[in-house]
Design a protein around this nucleic acid. Structure first.
Lengths: 346, 346
DNA sequence: ACAGAACACTAGCACGTGCTAGTATTTTAG
DNA sequence: CTAAAATACTAGCACGTGCTAGTGTTCTGT
């Protein structure tokens, strides 16, 4: 049952004998086309026929062949997502992307970057599946390659802000986020506030500008700790070392992201500095770590679902009208107050 | 150029005008079949023809349509991978899976679990792509569903040990790992060792048995802290609370995994307990966090690449011979000594 | 010089599905 | 009561590729 003729000269049945529409149709006693209509939710068949089709499909364990669908359809309805599993922030966005895509009738195919698999390769795989558009999460591709890619396929950069001469990008409003942080710290009486700037990160400039704006507005000194590293726990630990060597430590520190804050706080605690009683620390991202009871990090919240929604909606717009002028979209941010920031002790 | 007739009655060109083999063939002045041979690396053409094909393909930006390939091939050469981006351990395995798959001529398709997308759905998508086999990372499916799935498609469970009446599984040798940890702690003079057992995790029993074996062997008291939670930082923090309430704290603690150890250590430090000078802590997984300078966690190392290789090799075996008797594979483990474990202070 | 093999290529069907265009049968409208 | 319209289906091509079976042309060995 369910067997199909095998053309293989060796007589070995290579093809999996998974049921096709034709098998379902045969069992249900209808034409293959009707099975297709039923599965596409179109009209043009009786409830009885539909019931028989569903029953037969269930009995045979039928699943539509997505490759065949994508091949035949005028539009594949597939969005490709490139991400780096070594980074934690993309993961929350992926969650939301599935949700938002389903709502818009799109399928998602993920393509990860790995040690011996660069972004180019990940992208080419997705193009191989004839994705209608790509979402590049925290892309590190040089701008020239992005420009080239934009001429080949619609895409949007998430988390990395691009010059609008290149392509669409969405990220959280980093400048605004850091202004919120500084406002909060200032309102708690802090006047000696340091910002940890990891220069090798792509949106470091935007966040730095927010810090500088806010401190200027409050008439505070602008103390920036430059780190060559990236947004990892380790760079936070390095920043802690620098702080510890100072004669006078700031009373509050704004970090570039939550992971950095975790590293900073942990390293300070190892050195015997208590957070928050001796020094207040704020993060950025409101990632999973921020909620940990032992951190309870005051941080800038970016709604992953809203970010995903903005990205996908814009991408869908672009797919239907490739002549759109690229733009930078900023998703709104808010401050989540937790326990890592307290009023300055006198 | 590159345009193809559009059958759409509205006259809207829905199909992307991405080049096909036929386009390449036309430009190169050869037949479509020859283009196929060239791309499949088969013999049967002259170097000159191949050069023209490659040139034309590059000029047109040709990429093979993976959907068409998968549809037409007798064997799709696709392995499906189900993972939960909310967990950190799968991510290192995914990295390795790409590498190992490529070596064996398989394509990988990822399918993530999300809030409103359960494991069933993730699996069905992969079946839709006609994967030849599945790799379920840290699956939480009930055993009945797994048994049913095994009759439908070859798969292997990674990180969750299954009864060999169900299906293949690979995980690190958890019992051995904890024996290594206890041996190490005992050799440093620790006699009062606690194990944090997160009961809701799937392989907790195996690791616990290793702890019990080793402590028995060393003639040590068997102090197990039962936590209802999972292997997260938060459950480590909960364990820390329990420890802190004790009259006499153990001098060493073995955790179920690194994340838990991070939570435990952080919570202890907040409470003013110094790690490792007052209490030694060991983890499990040798994940990214273990190497952080402020943790420097002694932990059990599982080679993600070896795990991936074992899983894929076994899966490929099963694909070619579905009658294999399921087995449990244990990947070797080793202890990575860092600074979170020190000799017991007198 | 001639058969056979090796080479360089082309023809045409098939994979499983979506789409448009049909064909009966039943229902509705005037 | 007849024509038109709606319903419930079926027929057949097409998507881009892989595979087997060809067809000519050039090389080999005797």
């Amino acid at each position: 049952m369910g067997e199909r003729p095998v053309r293989n000269p060796l007589g070995i049945a290579l093809k999996s004998n998974r049921a096709t529409m034709a098998d379902v149709a045969k069992l249900a006693g209808v034409s293959r086309q009707l099975v297709g209509f039923v599965f596409q939710g179109k009209s043009g068949y009786s409830p009885e026929a539909a019931a028989r089709v569903h029953k037969a499909a269930k009995q045979l364990g039928y699943r539509p062949n997505l490759a065949a669908q994508s091949l035949r359809r005028d539009t594949t309805k597939i969005i490709g997502v490139v991400f780096d599993p070594r980074e934690s922030s993309p993961l929350e966005i992926i969650q939301s992307l599935y949700k938002v895509s389903a709502k818009n009738g799109y399928e998602v195919i993920l393509s990860a970057i790995a040690d011996d698999r660069d972004e180019d390769e990940a992208i080419h795989e997705l193009i191989g599946y004839r994705c209608e558009g790509l979402i590049l999460i925290a892309s590190r591709l040089p701008t020239e390659k992005l420009t080239l890619l934009a001429s080949e396929i619609p895409f949007i950069s998430v988390g990395r802000q691009l010059d609008s001469s290149i392509a669409d990008s969405v990220c959280s409003d980093g400048a605004k986020g850091l202004e919120l942080v500084v406002d909060c710290l200032a309102s708690k009486g802090h006047t000696d506030i340091a910002y940890i700037n990891a220069t090798s990160m792509l949106h470091s400039e935007v966040r730095l500008s927010g810090f500088l704006n806010a401190t200027l507005r409050h008439g505070l000194p602008q103390q920036v700790i430059e780190i060559e590293g990236d947004y990892t726990e380790e760079s936070g630990a390095i920043a802690a070392d620098i702080l510890l060597k100072k004669d006078l430590m700031p009373t509050a520190v704004a970090c570039s992201n939550d992971q950095q804050a975790l590293g900073l706080i942990s390293a300070l605690r190892v050195a015997g500095i208590s957070v928050p009683s001796q020094i207040s620390v704020a993060g950025y991202d409101d990632s999973r770590v921020a909620g940990f009871s032992f951190l309870s990090l005051t941080t800038v919240h970016q709604d992953a679902e809203e970010l995903a929604e903005m990205a996908l909606n814009r991408l869908i717009e672009r797919i239907s009208d490739q002549s759109l002028v690229p733009s930078v979209l900023l998703s709104p941010v808010s401050l989540v107050m937790r326990k890592s920031v307290v009023a300055k002790s006198l």
